[in-house]
Amino acid sequence: MLSKKSKLFYVVMCFAIFFILSPFLITVIASVAGSNMFHFPPEQFTLMNYKNLFQDEQLWQSVWLSFCIGVTATLLAVTIGITAAMGIVKGQLPMKNVIESFFMGPLIVPLVTVGISFLVFFSTFQAEGTIWSIILAHSVIISPYVTRIACANLRQSNEMLEEAAMMLGAGFWYMFRTVLIPSMLPSVISGAVLSFLVSMDEYTVTVFLAQVNTVTLPIRIYQYTTIDINPTITAFSAMIILLSFIGLIVLEKVFKIHKYMDF
């Protein structure tokens, strides 16, 4: 039997869950609404938005662009993360604590500050707006997610394995490929997935660098929702929301991601 108090707590919790999920619910409802998307309740239901969605080339171009930027930037970030962790945990760097917080810097410095500094920096080479400027910028701001998890992994790793490999005649490079990288892989992958998601959704820094031919997905969504209002975006958003929820459940079932949720 539930006491009166815990019943009240349940009601409050239901409100909280409703608050958390409400923007997703409304988007799914709006995606099948025939009328103006800012009008509630919808007057009729249609699948028009979904039909238009697959003919909207502009939107899919942005999806592809963001995907390419995300993949390249994540590869760079993984390289930074692994090498940084090797240096911090196992190498001989001076003032290790300072260097470690330096690598965490992009999480503390406001993204607007980072965005402006990249704009100033890349404009000296006339490189602002190029796809590479966005990739390099993303690689810096998403790398902390990999670096942090790679450091944590190396701190717990068993040094005996590494020594055994070297003792048995492996060179550093061979040991690195066959012992160190495989032992770091699971945690590095979860860091990489997270940083890929951050890159796909990055708006604040990108908006300073993006130009007409490098409109990434979040900027496109912003344009479709506020500047030239296009109801197709409701269908796209609803699709992304459903896919994310399915992905989340699958990831939890297969990888138990709640263990890695420690940002």
Binding site: M200, I221, T225, S237
Partner: peptide, 14 residues
Amino acid sequence: FMSLTIRLFGWMML
């Protein structure tokens, strides 16, 4: 794990 732009769009409609 959801896009912030999409979340805010939902709030705009709400």
